[in-house]
Design a protein around this nucleic acid. Sequence first.
DNA 1: TGGCGGATGTCACAGACTGACATGACTCAC
DNA 2: GTGAGTCATGTCAGTCTGTGACATCCGCCA
Lengths: 197, 197
Amino acid sequence: MSVAVIKYDGRMTRWQPDSRGRLSKAATELYLERGFSQTTVAQIAERAGVTERTFFRYFADKREVLFDGSSRLQELMADAVINAPATARPLDAVGAALDACGAVFVDLEYSQSRQAIIDSDPSLQERELIKRDRLVGAIVHALQARGVTEPTASLAAQTGIGIFHVAFATWLAEGTTRSYSEIARDLLTELRTVAAA
Amino acid sequence: MSVAVIKYDGRMTRWQPDSRGRLSKAATELYLERGFSQTTVAQIAERAGVTERTFFRYFADKREVLFDGSSRLQELMADAVINAPATARPLDAVGAALDACGAVFVDLEYSQSRQAIIDSDPSLQERELIKRDRLVGAIVHALQARGVTEPTASLAAQTGIGIFHVAFATWLAEGTTRSYSEIARDLLTELRTVAAA
DNA sequence: TGGCGGATGTCACAGACTGACATGACTCAC
DNA sequence: GTGAGTCATGTCAGTCTGTGACATCCGCCA
């Protein structure tokens, strides 16, 4: 399967570049075309022009392909919590983290098809859930660095990610009427009302 | 593998009764003895005196054994929400659901070892998370039956399950100083404070 | 020139799950 | 009591995921 190609500089190279990218693209396409569970790693690898083994070198499993950006999001939110003004109360700091995600959620169409894939398969939902849970963990950690103690930190983080989730889903459903960030802000306000009631 | 046994009434029966129970027990024991990922279904089946195929007739997969009671919990909580006084606000109804779980969380030692198994394996954590998510779904549904609209229902349910989780973890960690129900009540109060702040 | 490291391939395999069909004890209608 | 049907289980063959060990070959550097 050693495909010889011409590189930019004209020298021979043993394999096409960016296997990871091709694998990711091939996987997403196939999940969309035939469904996640109907897609085998062999098919993904074939479309990407590599072997199955190579797939598993880049992705821990078949599901992980769809959650590639999750560590970036995690850093983004944790940083936002840490860099929130010293005067900010826990839920305010979490609000800043919710806001920070806005930078990532821009391509609505991509987000929608990705979510459609996830919603179609329970095992992908499980994976999504654990990613969200890691987010909670990261925020708890960041809050603790601000001096917030338990159980307040956990409560605020849980609550924040709950809002994050509802906001994201609402954004996907609404289309372009409101941005993700607007929705998240509105929901946080709503929550304060519900909880205060 | 057809084990002939004497039944209570003395008649011959083809197999020992309660395969499901034996499988469940064998699995839990083995997960504890050698770790979840080091345990094969073949080993579980062997200890239970049945074939692998029989394991998969009772449990959808290796993980599901540990989440057998989850549908009962779901009904319990949904019923509590539905049967809460008509005057109860969303979070009060959710509080009733939290309280209702107290009936299930009695055997501390069992809950602790089960949780230790789950905490030791990411794939089990994923499963636990999706069960919790189903709980959220059930509560949302129950709240909507009470006339609570979105996004309030989702927010209240998410928040409630967040508390549920923290309360359960706290109960396992504290030992016997407070009952699960007490802890849950305290946390709900705490949350109202955090959110109102 | 020759050795080294990195990305990939090749191979062999264990283990999770599934579908199709077989078996034999029980049960119920007649 | 007999024959059909049902139920729990067994048997078997197979697909797919994921992993470990080792081979290959290119580009780089001394």
